[in-house]
Design a protein around this nucleic acid. Structure first.
Length: 437
RNA sequence: GUCCCCAUGGCUCAGUGGCUAGAGCGCCGGCCAGUCACGCCGGAGAUCGAAGGUUCAAUUCCUUCUGGGGACACCA
């Protein structure tokens, strides 16, 4: 018999159906049992009556979270959760769960299970409907991200993750053994998406893994995560990049809100807001000025510390009613060597950071495409020709003016669900102290 | 890497310088024809994170270590 999903069962009253999923809850009485079956579409109540002696006995022994097949008649049942239930005629265990779960799948009472323990048993933790929703949204996110750029004629590239030399200054890279030699895991597709500009591809985007060997212990860092990047040629300034970035975000959030807005609100209490265009923009100097009244101690002159980022977002929300803000005109000291600088103000870069509700989610810039200028900027930052010679060569034989941005979708997901921690929205977190499961 | 906090059955938490370390959920057994955080009765399950120290006596106080969380630095 063909399988019916729990979400469809209600629309088949009187029909015999076959359902498959996990036994989420069992409420057992002497002559009637209520089994809550969960599949990827939701849950439904299955009723086992003592009239079916053998079935009743079999159902009594099924441990919670076992994988089962239930056959029975779907009926409308106003008293049942969801308004429909299955009158069970047979039940079969496909895979029995060990009787005591190491972490609960249905959290009862006050405290939620400790996060690190939940991550140890992530495959059980992910059985929770709210976690399933997160990955349904991830899928929509990536689809909408790609759709936005594909419709604008961007090409998709996949740059290699093995590299022969460290790419960015001071970057902490993972070293791997490469046939007896040394290789590094890419901490950004930066160099290779720029190479695509030198190749005349003009507009590219990439979805791919990024590796960072930074020993960071925060709620928003991982040693491996997915990066969304784009790069485009023949731009006038970093504003062209900002415009595409904000357009993409508005488009992505529109789609996500349409498809998942209600569920997100129901399960996470977060009312998703589609941002208006353009996003507010402030220069770093203006940001510092706006923050002055709050007397936040910061030893950062050319950048914002996390507390300042949070406060700035609050101020912007008050002034403009906007969750996003671009911060522009960072000094060269706090930016990568390849950021283009203003002709008239050589200490200032033509780029931006984008904040969403207090967290940095993107860095973007116009890149320096002039070979001699780029080389000088790199050497000034302490890089050697030996280490970035190949990269510099990309610009030696003609390269259009260009720019791009690197987006941290994990951080955006964190903001979409108002979770405190990127680990909650990561399929399997990789951190300094976590390599399993 | 620096600073702060935490560690008690499978899970979430109480608690105490001294007697048998408690509860709810879960688990096991029994009862209960409509539950829906079902209910009721009974039971098992803890070297109180590890090592050392103070003390007549340490799960409780002290030190170190390990594990976890958070803040900073760095970044997406």
């Amino acid at each position: 018999m063909e399988r019916t999903y729990t979400a469809q069962a209600g629309s088949k009253p009187g029909e015999k159906v076959r359902l498959m999923g996990f036994l989420q809850t069992a409420r057992r009485q002497s002559k009637i049992q209520f089994l809550i079956l969960r599949d990827v579409t939701g849950t439904i109540q299955c009723v086992v009556s003592k009239e079916h002696e053998a079935v009743f006995a079999a159902a009594e022994d099924i441990s919670l979270e076992s994988v089962i097949v239930v056959e029975g008649v779907a009926v409308a049942a106003p008293q049942a959760p969801g308004g429909a239930e299955i009158q069970v005629e047979s039940v079969e265990v496909l895979s029995a769960a060990a009787p005591e779960l190491p972490i609960p799948v249905v959290e009862k009472g006050e405290g939620e299970t400790d996060q690190s323990l939940r991550l140890d048993y992530r495959w059980l933790d992910l059985r929770k409907p709210k976690n399933l929703l997160i990955f349904q949204v991830w899928t929509t996110f990536e689809e909408a991200f790609m759709k936005y750029f594909l419709e604008k004629g961007f090409l998709e590239i996949h740059s290699p993750k093995f590299m022969s030399a460290p790419s960015e200054s001071g970057a902490e890279l993972f070293t791997v053994d490469y046939f007896g030699g040394k290789a590094y895991l890419a901490q950004s597709p930066q160099f290779y998406k720029q190479m695509a500009m030198a190749s005349g591809f003009e507009k590219v985007f990439e979805v791919g893994p990024v590796f960072r060997a930074e020993p960071s212990f925060t709620t928003r860092h991982a040693t491996e995560f997915t990066g969304y990047d784009f790069e485009m040629s023949f731009i006038d300034s970093h504003e062209d990049i900002a415009a595409n970035l904000e357009g993409m975000i508005a488009s992505v959030l529109t789609t996500i809100k349409e498809r998942h807005g209600e569920k997100i609100k129901e399960l996470f209490g977060r009312e998703l807001v589609v941002p208006t265009l353009p996003f507010p923009r402030v220069t770093l100097a203006e940001a510092k000025e706006l923050l002055k009244p709050f007397d936040i101690k910061s030893d950062k002159v050319g950048d914002l510390n996390p507390e300042e980022e949070k406060k700035l977002s609050e101020v912007i929300m008050e002034k403009h009613g906007h969750e996003f803000v671009f911060v522009t005109e960072y000094p060269i000291e706090s930016r990568a060597f390849y950021h283009m600088r203003y002709e008239d103000r050589p200490g200032i870069t033509r780029g931006f950071d984008l904040m969403w509700n207090g967290v940095e989610i993107t860095t973007g810039a116009q890149r320096e495409h002039r070979y001699e200028v780029l080389k000088k900027q790199a050497l000034d930052k302490g890089l050697t020709e030996a280490s970035i010679g190949t990269y510099l060569d990309f610009f030696k034989y003609g390269c259009p003016p260009h720019g791009g941005a690197g987006i941290g979708p994990v951080r955006m997901m964190m903001k979409m669900f108002n979770t405190e921690n990127i680990r909650e929205v990561t399929y399997l977190h990789r951190g300094v102290n976590r390599l399993t499961p």
